[in-house]
Simulated scan of single mutants.
Amino acid sequence: MCYCYRRWPEIRVHVLWECGAAQDVWAGCLVRIQKIPNGQSDNFQLFGDLMDKLTRPEFEFFLVQAWFIWNQRNIVIHGGSFKEPGWLNKRATEFLEEFHQTQVQLSISTPLSPRSSWQPPPASVYKVNFDAAIFSNLNCSGFGAAMSVKGLLVTCSEEAEVLACRKALEFLVDAGFSNVIIEGDNENVMRAVSSSSRNHSWLGNIYEDVKWLMRGMQVVSVNSVKKGGNEVANVLARHAKNVVDEMFWIEDSPPPAVKALYHDSINIQ
Rank of each mutant, 00 (worst) to 15 (best):
L261M: 11
Y126S: 05
F62K: 09
L172Q: 11
D264A: 12
H78M: 09
S116C: 12
S195K: 15
I69G: 03
V258M: 12
I33T: 03
P37D: 07
P256W: 13
E18I: 07
W249V: 03
I181A: 07
V243W: 02
N234M: 07
V154F: 04
Q105C: 02
V104W: 09
R215M: 07
G184K: 01
K259H: 13
R73A: 04
P114E: 04
S157A: 13
S113W: 11
L172G: 06
F177Y: 12
C19P: 01
E231S: 15
A132K: 00
N129Y: 05
A21C: 08
V258W: 05
L163D: 02
A133S: 13
C140K: 04
V162M: 10
G28T: 09
I250A: 09
V128D: 01
L203E: 06
M214S: 15
A260S: 11
S124R: 12
M1R: 14
E231A: 15
A233R: 03
S196Y: 02
Y3P: 02
K90L: 05
S41M: 01
Q72P: 00
V193H: 00
N129T: 10
N89R: 14
M217T: 03
L213I: 06
L203Q: 05
I206T: 14
R215F: 01
R198E: 14
T102W: 11
Q218C: 10
C165P: 06
C156N: 14
A168C: 03
F68Q: 05
V222C: 14
Q105H: 05
Q119M: 14
H100W: 13
F61G: 00
M147G: 02
G142L: 07
K150A: 10
D174G: 08
E159F: 08
C4F: 14
E246D: 10
F95V: 10
F82C: 03
F62D: 06
I77G: 00
V219N: 00
P122W: 05
Q103K: 08
N43Q: 11
D49N: 15
N43K: 09
Q103S: 05
A145F: 11
I250T: 12
R215P: 01
N205K: 13
D42E: 11
I182R: 01
S195D: 15
F44M: 14
R238C: 08
V162P: 06
Q40L: 07
R73M: 04
